[in-house]
Design a protein around this nucleic acid. Structure first.
Length: 143
DNA sequence: CTTCTCACA
DNA sequence: TGTGAGGA
C-alpha cells in the first residue's frame, strides 16, 4: 500500500510517517516512481511506535527496540535483546527526573496561584513572587 | 488525483 | 508538526 492508505489505516499523518522513516523507525520499499510502498507489517509497526512514543521513549531508542519486540502482540512488548533492558532502565530514570521537574513547576504555579490576585484593579507587582528562580530556566533535574 | 522533496512566519 | 510551493 502507498502512504495514503497508511494514513487511513493508522491515523498517522503523511508528515509523521515520513518522519518515522527518517528516524529509522520504518523502511518502506520504493517504487521506481519514488512512491513509498508499505507492508502489512508496517501498519503493525506504526502501532508499536505510537505505544513506545507514548511511553516517552525517544525515537532513537525505539529504533533499536522495535526489532527486539515480538511482532504478534502490540500490547505485549517482550524485551529480548540484551542491551535493551539496560537502556530502558536508563530511560525510566530520565522520566523520573522529568517528573520531578514537573512537580517543581507545578509547586511554583501553586505558590503563585495561592498568593492570590490581590488585585484592586491595577497591575499588581506586589503580591507574591515565590523565591524559586530557575525553575523554568533550562535543563532537567536540578537539586 | 496522489505522492515527493524542501523550506519556513 | 502543519503548510505550501513546484514538479512528476
Amino acid at each position: 500500500m502507498r502512504i495514503g492508505e497508511m494514513v487511513r489505516r493508522t491515523g498517522v499523518s503523511e508528515r509523521l510517517l515520513r518522519y518515522y522513516e527518517e528516524q529509522g523507525l520504518l523502511t518502506p520499499e520504493r517504487l521506481p516512481s519514488g512512491y513509498r510502498v508499505y507492508s502489512e507489517a508496517d501498519v503493525h509497526t506504526v502501532r508499536r511506535i505510537r505505544i513506545l512514543l507514548a511511553a516517552g521513549l525517544p525515537t532513537a531508542t525505539i529504533a533499536r527496540a522495535l526489532p527486539c519486540l515480538r511482532d504478534d502482540d502490540p500490547s505485549h512488548l517482550a524485551p529480548v535483546c540484551s542491551g535493551l533492558v539496560a537502556e530502558l532502565r536508563r530511560e525510566r530514570e530520565r522520566i523520573t527526573r522529568t517528573i520531578d521537574d514537573l512537580r517543581a513547576s507545578r509547586n511554583l504555579l501553586d505558590a503563585v496561584i495561592e498568593a492570590g490576585p490581590d488585585d484592586t484593579g491595577a497591575p499588581d507587582g506586589a503580591g507574591a513572587r515565590p523565591d524559586d528562580t530557575a525553575l523554568f530556566a533550562s535543563g532537567p533535574s536540578a537539586a
